[in-house]
Design a binder for these strands. Structure first.
Length: 194
DNA sequence: TATTGGATCGCC
DNA sequence: GCGATCCAATAG
């Protein structure tokens, strides 16, 4: 059974709250009749004008435009000449904010993920922001898509499980390093860095 | 137009 | 620990 997608109101809140609550939700991506999905186990919050580590810190540019737009929309960017990173836009329209999806636990489409990643070990398929976009086949073409409906969305698992969520410093940034805006499922073997 | 550094990854 | 690799943003 497919999970029910989270609605706009879920994302139209404080970015930090959304980042925390996205832990345990399911990312679903259907393309060409193939369904790929995974449970979100690690996120980071990025604000706008008040966050020096955010792409939106210095205002709107062609790249970060969607961060200022409607909540619940994807923001995908390309970095380090090799990697794509997937975010979901937060806050009310006009206010910049996004949650970076950093790691997943693969659920469906594992064989395709292994093929794309060139890895046999399931734990290494989606345990990093660049790895999960490679495994899912997500690129800049998938930026600006509404994730509250359609074939690319985030939903509830339906499971009533207790989640032990840890808070930590964000990874791979040079400014605002000490902000505790990273969240991860402490019981997961699929988190990017321990 | 040129330069710089990056919300990463994988190999050394 | 470090190089790959390309693009966006900023400076000149």
């Amino acid at each position: 059974m497919s999970p029910v997608s989270l609605d706009r109101h879920f994302y139209e809140r404080n970015t930090q709250v959304v980042a925390f609550e996205l832990i345990g939700k399911v990312l679903v991506f259907k393309e060409n009749g193939t369904k790929i999905s995974g449970k979100i186990v690690e996120t980071e919050a990025y604000f706008g004008a008040k966050d020096p580590a955010s792409h939106a810190y210095r205002g709107m540019t062609p790249r970060n435009r969607v961060m200022f737009g409607a909540p619940g929309v994807s923001y995908v960017y390309f970095t380090y000449g090799n990697h794509h990173c997937l975010n979901v836009v937060t806050e009310k329209e006009g206010t910049a904010g996004a949650v970076l999806i950093r790691a997943l636990e693969p659920m469906e489409g594992i064989e395709l993920m292994k093929k794309r990643r060139g890895k046999a070990n399931e734990e290494q398929l989606t345990n990093g922001p660049g790895k999960l976009t490679q495994a899912f086949g997500i690129t800049r073409e998938h930026s600006g898509i509404n994730l509250t409906s359609g074939s690319f969305y985030i939903g509830e698992t339906g499971d009533q499980e207790f989640l032990s969520i840890q808070t930590a410093k964000r990874i791979g940034i040079s400014r605002a390093k000490d902000e505790l805006l990273r969240f991860y499922l402490s019981t997961s073997d699929h988190v990017s860095v321990r």
